[in-house]
Amino acid sequence: MLNFQTIMLFVGFLMIIAGCYCMIRTYHMLKIIIGIEVAMKAVTMFLILAGYMNGHMGLAQAYVITAIVIEVIVAVVFAGVTIGLYKKYGNMDIRNLTELKG
């Protein structure tokens, strides 16, 4: 039961938990990007592991490169929206956002 694939899956799963914990429990808006990035690294590792397991490494690399491009653009858009909110409120605290009621 304990082989190489299982260990990599388990470490990746721990990284995704860490990333989601960061996204949910932080009070600083820019820390959310760090959570997204950590989770995307785990997904990159899963994609390359899948390519290693079934032998099609070229296809897996194509997937990873596309995912990296999308990840960069999401980080840019998030930073833009965050800086817009900083200009409105004066600090980066996410507890300020109370205008919309749940």
Binding site: L30, I33, K41, I48, G51, V64, I68, A75, A79, I83
Partner: peptide, 27 residues
């Protein structure tokens, strides 16, 4: 995965860190 490793190191370790630090310095 040689190509994916190169792009991962150059983009994620370089570009995203630059974006992040410029966002920090803008605020």
């Amino acid at each position: 995965a040689y190509w994916a490793a190169v792009i991962e190191v150059s983009v994620c370790s370089g570009l995203i860190t630059v974006i992040f630090i410029s966002a920090i310095s803008l605020s």
